[in-house]
Design a protein around this nucleic acid. Structure first.
Lengths: 211, 211
DNA sequence: TGTACATCAGTGAACGCGCGTTCACTGATGTAC
DNA sequence: TGTACATCAGTGAACGCGCGTTCACTGATGTAC
């Protein structure tokens, strides 16, 4: 039987979340994770430095928790998108709009992922790359369900999914750079991203397996 | 009239280069630029910390010099590639081989660029993004010279060039991860990259300006 | 329910360390005559 | 060519600072009877 958490456990989880949020907030500015200090994080979270060790062994462990948190939100969005219908014609347009909205709503998480994907700490870098590879596999599976693509070989589906994902990842950079008060910039960026995805789909319609 | 540099100036340039090389070497490991200290760089270069200031105002200035150096090499490769012939059929295959060879030969520079493109210091990040934007523009111009594409609008050429560049940038990540002694991994990676670029070209052959 | 003890999230002082930057310096190279 | 002075790349000591981590602690929450 699972007991409901008492006030002590609740407060502990709150502090843990405060530490994660503090790190994200500091990371949203100039800093990269590697240059973020344990003391800065606890200061921002409003606890004493030593309290950190009640929640994480070191900064790496906190970073991995941030990776988890970031991809959890992304997977939820993907699941919602998958369960929707497929009008095909509007599919690209809707997916782009959903994606851009999601990234802007979770900008601190994506900023973190984008920086640390190529960044310093190998434990964090590898965790992010593993998640991205998983994301590519899932997208490849989804693509294979389309009538036009279900005769494709697995490796060709992965190749195409990789192309789509690298286009999306690159778009995240542009999305994060969007100034807050200029919707026309966001529109232009979305138009370009949509065109790029359509170009890929056009290419797929002519693709012949190259064996 | 320009005097030839004396022994003093020559030695100074040598130390400057030693500092740049030291930073690159340290960056090739676990560290990101933001976590790299001035003292570490001078230690690796074999000079005293204060000698640093004879060459750079601070670490940012050294970082910008590394950006310059990295893109200088890349532009030289591009220029060489542009001056070659265009067999069209083998064009993608040859370009991919040239690109992969160049990245592997300059792996430390590309590691630096890839990390700092999304990384901490805004001065360096902006310098890298400006160079990439320039690279996209040049590629768009080149693409516009192909008979099949010379009726395209400038913005569509830029859109396509952006797609190609984000594919290449993403490929750099994979290239840098290639283990040294496994040529079959490199082959597979190149095959995938080639397929992705061919897919884009196929899409381009069907593209209709969307006005 | 009331009491006595155990747990443990968060505190606060202390430590040794590497950092960026300052300063006065040394001695080889450069320049003027 | 030789001499006397100027330049300046690199040295070495010193500084104050924020860092990660240790330790013994406090007091609210949890548990057993």
């Amino acid at each position: 039987m699972v007991r409901p958490p008492g006030p002590r456990e609740e407060k502990k989880q709150k502090t843990r979340q405060a530490l994660l949020d503090a790190a994200l907030t500091l990371l949203a500015g100039e800093q990269s994770f590697a240059s973020l200090s344990l003391r800065e994080v606890t200061r921002e979270a409003g606890v004493v430095p030593t309290a950190f060790y009640r929640h994480f062994r070191d900064m790496d462990e906190l970073g991995l928790a941030l990776v988890d948190e970031s991809f959890h939100a992304l997977r939820q969005m993907m699941r919602a998108a998958r369960s929707g219908t497929l009008p095909t014609e509007q599919l690209v347009h809707r997916s782009v709009a959903t994606f851009v909205t999601h990234v802007r709503a979770n900008d601190r998480h994506f900023q973190f992922l984008l920086r640390e994907r190529a960044g310093g700490r190998s434990a964090i870098r590898n965790a992010i790359r593993t998640e991205i590879r998983l994301f590519i596999s899932e997208l490849a599976t989804d693509l294979g369900r389309f009538p036009a693509l279900n005769a494709w070989r697995t490796e060709d589906l992965r190749m195409m999914a990789g192309l789509v994902v690298s286009t999306l990842v690159n778009a995240v950079l542009d999305i994060l750079d969007l100034p807050a008060g200029r919707p026309e910039d966001a529109q232009e960026m979305m138009t370009v991203l949509e065109s790029q995805l359509r170009l890929i789909l056009l290419g797929a319609s002519l693709w012949k397996r190259g064996d």
